[in-house]
Amino acid sequence: MRKSLLRMTLRQLQVFRAVCASQSYSRAADEMALTQPAVSQQIRQLEEQLGQPLFEYVGRKLYLTEAANSLLAASEDIFDRLDNLDMSLSRLQGTLRGELKVGVVSSIQYLTPHLLAAFRERHPEVTYCMEVMRRSDAIRRLQDNKDDVTLMALVPQDRALEFFPFLDNPIIAVAHPHHPLATASDLPLKALEEHLVLHREAGSGTRKACEEFLQNKRVHLLQTIQLGSGDALVQGALAGLGIAMVTAHAAATFLRSGELVRLDFVDLPLYRSWCAVHARGKRLSPVAEAFLAFLREERAEIRRIARRFEHPRPAER
C-alpha cells in the first residue's frame, strides 16, 4: 500500500463525499459548516496523497474523475464498516443503535411504517430512512446496493438476490359505491370485460400480477385507463372513473369509511406475498440483520398489524 494513502483522514473523506454528493465546493462547504477555501484545501491534500486529480470542470459543471469514483467507492465501504462497528459496539452494550435504510415499492408504503414502529418498540435507538419507489427503481437500487432491505412483491428471478416472504399481499377490486357492480354478488371475472378498469403503469408489480392472473383466467380487458401509482388508482375509483385492482392495504381507509366498496368477485382476492429482499452476498449491518429476523420470526405480530388494513368480503358485512 502507498504510504501516502495512510495519511488520509476520515475528515478529508467526509469533505470529499460532500463535494461528490453536491457537485459543488460551495454547497459542500455549507453542508460541512466550513469555508470554501477549507474545502478546497482538504481536496488538494487528498489529490496530493493520491497523486491524481479528483474533480474537473467542464464549462461550469463539476465532474468526478476516474480516481474520484474509485475513492468514492472505497470511502463508502469504509463508512459502512464504521457504521457496522458502531452498531456492533452498541449491541455489546445491550442496545441496538444505527440507521436502517429501507426501500419499499409504493404499494406497501402504507403498511411499512407500522412494521417499523413495531420494530422500534424493541429497539428504540434505531433510526430509519424509508424510500418509496416504483418496482423498476427498487430493482435498480438493489443492484446498486443503495438500501439495507427492500420490501416488494414479485421478486425478479434473474438477479442475484436473497429473499423470503413474510406476509400475504391481497389484491382486490374496488369501485365507487354508485358503480353498477357495487351491490352485485358472486361476480365472475369476465364481468370486468364490460367495464372500465384502471391499472398501473408498465413495470408495476401489481400490474404484472394482475395481467398474469387475468391472462390465466382468459379475461381480456377491453376498456382500460393507465394511472401512474397505487394512490392514483384509488383516487380514480373514488372519482367514479372505473374499477381499480389494488392492494387491500392501499384502499383500506376508504373501504372503512364507505367511500369505496370492495367488489364481490368470486376469484378475488388475488394473493401474492410481500418479500424482504437484499443482494446476495451483501454484508448486512446488525440493524438490518435484526430487522430481517423480526420479519422472519414475528409472523403473528406482523399479521396482527396487517389486520388493520383488512376489509371483509361483501357478503360478510
Rank of each mutant, 00 (worst) to 15 (best):
L189T: 09
I243P: 00
L214Y: 08
R200G: 12
V197E: 08
L221N: 02
L221H: 05
L214S: 03
H199Q: 15
F213H: 10
V234N: 07
A239M: 15
G205I: 04
L238W: 06
L238K: 14
F213D: 05
E193K: 04
Q223H: 15
G228P: 08
T224Q: 15
P188M: 10
Q215R: 03
V219L: 10
S204H: 10
G203D: 11
T247F: 06
R218V: 08
A237P: 05
A191N: 13
E211Y: 00
Q235F: 02
A232R: 03
A232K: 11
L198H: 04
G203F: 08
V234H: 03
L227G: 06
G240S: 12
L221Y: 07
T253M: 03
A244H: 10
S204L: 08
H249C: 04
H249D: 11
M245T: 08
H199I: 02
A248I: 12
L241K: 09
A239Y: 05
V219Q: 10
G240A: 08
A237G: 13
G203W: 02
G236D: 07
H249G: 01
H195I: 06
E201L: 09
L233F: 12
E212Y: 03
K190M: 07
K217A: 14
A252P: 00
P188S: 07
H249L: 10
R218W: 04
Q226I: 07
H195E: 10
L238T: 00
Q215F: 07
G230A: 01
I225P: 00
A202D: 11
Q215C: 09
D231G: 04
L214T: 07
S229F: 01
A202H: 06
A237T: 02
A250R: 10
A252K: 05
L192M: 11
Q215K: 04
A248R: 15
P188F: 10
L198W: 04
V219T: 06
A239S: 14
A209F: 04
S204M: 04
K208L: 15
Q235K: 07
S204A: 05
A237K: 06
K190V: 08
T253Q: 08
K190N: 03
E194H: 14
R200S: 14
V246Y: 13
L222C: 00
M245K: 00
H220S: 08
F213L: 13
L238C: 05
A191E: 15
H220W: 13
T253W: 00
S229M: 03
A232E: 05
V219A: 10
K217R: 14
G242H: 02
L241H: 02
T253S: 09
G228M: 07
K190R: 12
H220N: 07
S204I: 01
R218A: 14
F213G: 01
V246A: 10
A209K: 11
L241R: 15
E201M: 12
P188Q: 10
A209R: 12
L238A: 06
G236W: 09
I225G: 00
L192S: 06
I243M: 01
L233V: 05
N216P: 00
D231K: 10
L192A: 06
A250H: 01
V246L: 13
